[in-house]
Amino acid sequence: MTAQQPFLSLRNLSVGFGPQGAIRAVRDVSFDLEAGKTLCLVGESGSGKSVTATSIMGLHKPGSAVVTADRLRLDGRDLLSCDEAQLSGLRGSLMAMIFQDPMSSLNPALTIGFQLREALQLHEKVSRKAADARVLEILQWVRIPDAARRMNAYPHQLSGGMRQRIMIAMALICRPRLLIADEPTTALDVTVQAQILWLLSELQREFGTAIIFITHDLGVVAEIADDVAVMYAGTLVERGSVHDIFERPSHGYTAGLLRATAEFVPGEESLGRLEEIPGNVPSFSMLPKGCSFVDRCRFAAPSCHERTPDWRQVAEGHDTRCDQPIDDARAASALRETMI
């Protein structure tokens, strides 16, 4: 290897559940993430985003999942060869995760201060007094007003947005270098979502944390991502910089998702009809032969039914898993067809 290794590197990560891992919820997922950058993992429900994330964290119940990969390395460590005790030591200090519903991750019977202190003292030998100081500091970082008093509050006494700030504080208190955020703003109102997204990017600038942000909301992706990886039916179909993905999508699914999103742009006339992606997401037991998206793809060729496409590079840092990648000319002619 000539260049320096990426901070996080996945090659052909696959995860199966059930007997012998027969239900393959994630197949051959590969991507890299540089330190201090944000990767958005985009896809619809059941596409395997969360399973990919929990596999990196090693959070599957022992014996419940079969995780295989050619490579799963974080900061030079091979996570696949780590045992549970080693992983447990890394969680919190090197990598941390926040979830959609903070209420289900916080203990309702313990104060915010206690739970944050516990998260810190699990990994670092610090006195009670020093721990309290660190808790207060991180609460101020996540912009909890009146932080000293709030340390004695219970989760139910806080609003949804405040609780998510507490979760972020708990995840960041040991200064992990990787934060995985699984739909952290989906349950929040848009005005509060905007605050949390802004807070995350501010903290990232300050602490240099790499972020994997899982979402189904393309608007959120455009707002925060450096790089984007698009998942469909358990596998990655396209990855590239946020500008490549939004401005030059090359996979039929990515292009379809972008055009199916109802967006409001001030000053622009809204189009009468949204473009649909026909059909439904296939279930894992009934994946079509060849490309998983073939039955819904407007650009599908006969060969797409035959074989699973390999990765191909469409531009520097922009790869697609499609044998008929969209180029501008073809997209333009397809668009004309829909107009008629």
């Binding site: 609003s159 949804g160 947005g161 405040m162 109102d189 848009v190 005005t191 509060v192 979502q193 905007a194 605050q195 997204l197 802004w198 807070l199 909301d217 393309l218 608007g219 959120v220 992706v221 455009a222 707002e223 991502a225 946020v242 500008h243 939004f246 401005e247 972008l258 999103t261 967006e263 409001f264 742009v265 001030p266």
Partner: peptide, 25 residues
């Protein structure tokens, strides 16, 4: 105005510079 400004737009070239509305309802 604040609500509209808070809606994330699928335009990576038009990012907001800050959260438009402070506080919770």
């Amino acid at each position: 105005a604040g609500l509209l400004e808070s809606v994330p737009r699928p335009r990576p070239s038009q990012r907001r510079q800050r959260a438009p509305l402070e506080g919770d309802p």
